[in-house]
Amino acid sequence: MNAPLRRPPDASPSVLWKLDEIVRDLRLAREQWRVAQQRTLESGGREFPSREALREIVDRLCGALFPMRLGPPDLQQGPSEDFYVGHTLDIALRSLLDQVRLELTHASRHDPLTGPASIENDAVAIVRQFAAALPGIRVVLDSDVEAAYRGDPAARSVDEIVLCYPGTLAIIHHRLAHRLYRLGVPLLARIVSELAHSATGIDIHPGARIGKSFFIDHGTGVVIGETAVIGERVRLYQAVTLGAKRFNVDADGSLEKGAPRHPIVEDDVVIYAGATILGRVTIGRGSSIGGNVWLTHSIPPGSFLTQAISTNEVLEGGGGI
């Protein structure tokens, strides 16, 4: 039997793990990457937005949007509610401004005509427009919450929807992320959407356009691609995919970015669990797509699509085959 490994009495952790060598090799790896990516003239400060900062920003925004449900436990309705909303928004928006500056600065690194003053003006304008959009986002989210309450017989209250439903958490993140995406900070938007993806298993690209009264029931495994367009009063169940059928390439063989490649789902459509819809196809208004359907072509309004019925036959003597 091998004797247990014992730490030498005079060995510090840095000696045990050879930390000096690891730190040196990691520095060399970083330097090689930066040279390859033409990032050798860094200012020394942080280059990219922070996931942790954005997590805190979104948490504050959720509290400001739904103060009595997602705000602090001791909050009271009345003047203190407005004070909390204003104070929380001020902190969140100031922090968001820092993150917007980082993305705009990174995006401008190859554009010598974009100076600090221009970046600052653009960052302030983006955050100002985002802030002005928040009341409208709250109104649309109310329609989403009401759609969930109407669409789920297990829901006992709209408050339960906001507090408990992963689909609601995902759509709150998406409404915020989509506004950032439209305002020209796609990296921030993607980070916000991925925070919800990590928490809920629901993957909605911030570029997807989604109408009001949207409800994702259960939710785990739902995927909605960047160029998907979803109408009003649409309901999805778990494991639904609105994806791309193929990816176009340019003359250099690189994937084309931003081309329409995901489905269009018109108003009042229901898509049941496990359905996969691929490509730039249109699901007509009022249609119903059954569970586990695989669909790569458009269907007209009012369609009802299910899987083919399986049959079990006994063929004697080859059955004519």
Rank of each mutant, 00 (worst) to 15 (best):
H173F: 12
V145Y: 08
L89H: 02
Y149R: 02
A148V: 08
D122I: 03
V127K: 06
A170V: 06
S118C: 13
P166Y: 04
A155K: 01
L163Q: 11
L169Y: 14
H178R: 01
L187R: 10
G86M: 05
H173C: 08
Q129T: 09
R138T: 14
R182W: 14
I126Y: 03
D98V: 05
H173Y: 10
Y181H: 00
L169F: 11
A177Y: 00
G167E: 02
V185K: 06
I172S: 05
G115P: 00
R101L: 15
R182H: 05
P79S: 15
T168M: 09
H174F: 11
V124H: 07
A147P: 00
L97T: 06
A133N: 08
V140M: 12
E81W: 09
V85Q: 11
S118W: 12
L188R: 03
R175K: 12
G86Q: 12
G115C: 03
I171F: 07
A107Y: 07
H87C: 07
Y181M: 12
V127Q: 13
D111Y: 09
V185L: 10
H178S: 07
A117Y: 08
T88K: 05
A117L: 04
V139M: 14
E146Q: 06
A133E: 13
P135T: 08
Q77D: 11
S143L: 09
E146H: 04
A92R: 04
V100N: 11
S108H: 07
P112Q: 08
A123I: 14
D122H: 11
L96I: 14
G184W: 02
D98C: 11
H178F: 11
A148D: 07
